[in-house]
């Protein structure tokens, strides 16, 4: 089903999307998107939504199972507190992508802004993942409590500061070397021995964006993880 979003307020647009999914539509194509917020908010569905244009903040916020593909850039907060599903961005994405996401995937072809993957967490079989083709802003993976973040740094301009500040679980993989001075306190930085864990993600990413999987997967990766699962364990006296 096709929806032309030109001139539609997000409330009307989301209403139309909901109505379409309630009617059993499995594929919704949105065109003329120009900054509408909250697309797919809180939807529990395994439908696919394709977005033509630049969606506004909080794309897929609280979503549970949708597949959203954006043919352009997207603004801040995509995948905010999402429970499951997949968001693919064929461009750059803004700040706080994947805040507190619990499961599912976010693939961004280009660069992302600040605080991406902040407080993402994992639980049982839920293990969220964010893969970024370009570079990321400061505070990548702040307070990270689970899941995987991969930065492919394909333009070799990754220069994030305060990486993983406050992280207490999960893993960040960055292609190439990382200056330890740019990594948050309490984060261990080492050369990734093997990247088996992220190979399926890399394959999916390369297929989606038409990149050379062999070349990327044979690169050297740096692996960041928390030194302690209790970084704030000894702050108090009783």
């Amino acid at each position: 089903m096709k929806i032309n979003a030109k001139g539609l307020h997000y409330r009307e647009l989301n209403r139309e999307i909901k109505d379409a999914l309630n009617k059993g539509e499995k594929k919704v194509e949105l065109s003329g998107i120009n900054g509408q917020r909250f697309i797919g908010a809180g939807l529990k569905s395994n439908a696919e939504i394709s977005v033509e244009g630049v969606p506004g903040n909080d794309l897929g916020v609280f979503m549970n199972g949708l597949t959203i593909r954006v043919n352009n850039n997207c603004q801040d907060g995509a995948g905010n507190t999402m429970n499951s599903g997949k968001i693919t961005i064929h461009g750059d994405a803004g700040d706080v992508i994947g805040y507190a996401m619990r499961n599912g995937k976010i693939l961004v072809k280009g660069n992302v802004g600040y605080r991406v993957g902040i407080h993402m967490k994992e639980y049982k079989e839920n293990r969220p993942a964010i893969v970024i083709g370009g570079s990321a802003g400061d505070f990548l993976g702040e307070y990270m409590a689970g899941g995987i973040i991969v930065v492919l740094n394909l333009n070799n301009d990754f220069d994030s500061d305060y990486i993983g500040t406050g992280m207490h679980a999960g893993t960040i993989y960055i292609r190439g070397k990382v200056d330890e001075r740019k990594v948050g306190e309490g984060v261990e930085t080492k050369k990734a021995g093997n990247i088996k864990e992220i190979l399926p993600l890399l394959k999916e990413f390369c297929e989606e964006f038409g990149l050379d999987f062999e070349k990327i997967s044979n690169s050297e990766f740096t692996m960041l993880s928390a030194k302690s699962t209790r970084p704030y364990g000894e702050l108090y006296c009783y």
Binding site: G77, V96, R115, E122, Y123, Y143, A169, T229, Y232
Partner: peptide, 15 residues
């Protein structure tokens, strides 16, 4: 969240 891990709510909402 996994058993036995700290549940940390940061001071601000980061959005």
């Amino acid at each position: 969240i996994p058993e036995g891990t700290d549940a940390i709510s940061p001071a601000p909402h980061h959005d």
